[in-house]
Design a protein around this nucleic acid. Structure first.
Lengths: 178, 178
DNA sequence: ATTTGCATGTAATCTGTTACATGATTCA
DNA sequence: TGAATCATGTAACAGATTACATGCAAAT
């Protein structure tokens, strides 16, 4: 079967610019965080694998006096593979697992006051997260050019904000039914 | 650390009523599907584990002439454990991984026509899914009683519909920016 | 000098999916 | 009598997290 999404997440970033494993880790941490992420312990082995598969290569750079860092770049084969994946029609994914919705599902096992507190706690968390995302959005002075990489950033950030807005209004709706 | 969410998903269902592994599998397939799921290959071993931990027990029932099925029920210890988990304040989870959003993030690597097709394909999938969920909602003649298990069903189904509505309007927003 | 961040790796464990494997019951 | 569904399990593999492990560079 083989889904290997991490493979394509990495190839996609290296298709935008050359990076080290550490840079990739930072991209996952800050930019892609709204829809994908990986720890360095997953990234480094994957980079080795992609290199043996001939999809990426690296050259060593010296930072300071001795510190070696590996700057990775995508190969033509890698780019073709990536674009093939990107063009593939994406079948609807199974709904992502969410512990918070699971707890709501079971919330009738709680006393009314506890239950209300659960919804209010989730609500507060999403309000805060929404504000945080709105802050990030300010970095975009205006909508980036359609063909730029930043446009992708902009769209998914917008999507993350819409998601928080939806969660907030759903949780409010739940509270009003209690 | 130990998250063991499957453990609590199963305990929560057994807290509602006694069930076999097969019944649990069906619940995951139809009811919990909007936010949690598990295959039978994961459920059966987990049931054994929960029994050795003293959180559930089972008795054998005969179906037809010979077919043995194991009807599981939650123990007092299991119920306490479950309620403890349910009461715990749930920290905001990392955003769930979504391949579709990853593809949108990278969509500037495609030609404008291909890109537009990607958004339209995703849009059609979510429109269809939204209709499907609305069909399910019709099973509820009215809002179930707040204290019933069905009320949890109702809230998460509502949440699933809100999620599809959000995705549809976000994708339309993206298309309008292209 | 000390702390924070840069930089790279492996090992152990846990979680989840796909495949393998078997057999009974029910309904058309 | 054949197909669909009920019913239960294991094995192999893939994907992801946490912990272990090391050392340099830059800024205060």
């Amino acid at each position: 079967m083989a889904a290997r999404t991490l493979k394509y997440a990495i190839l996609g970033l290296l298709n935008q610019k050359n990076m080290t494993g550490y840079d990739l880790m930072k991209e996952f941490e800050f930019t892609l965080n709204e829809f994908w992420y990986a720890n360095h312990s997953q990234i480094y082995p994957e980079l080795k694998k992609l290199e043996t598969e001939g999809l990426i290569t690296h050259e060593v750079e010296i930072s300071g006096q001795v510190l070696e860092k590996k700057l990775y770049s995508i190969t033509d084969t890698g780019r073709e593979d990536f674009l093939g994946w990107l063009r593939e029609d994406q079948p609807l994914e199974p709904t992502p697992k969410e512990v918070s919705r699971l707890k709501i599902f079971y919330s009738s096992a709680l006393k009314p006051a506890e239950r209300k507190a659960m919804f209010e706690s989730q609500l507060a968390q999403h309000e805060e997260r929404r504000l945080h995302l709105m802050e990030n959005q300010k970095k975009f002075k205006k909508v980036p050019a359609k063909s730029s990489n930043e446009f992708g950033d902009y769209l998914v950030l917008l999507g993350a904000i819409r998601r928080e807005e939806m969660l907030i209004s759903w949780l409010q709706e739940c509270l009003s039914l209690l």
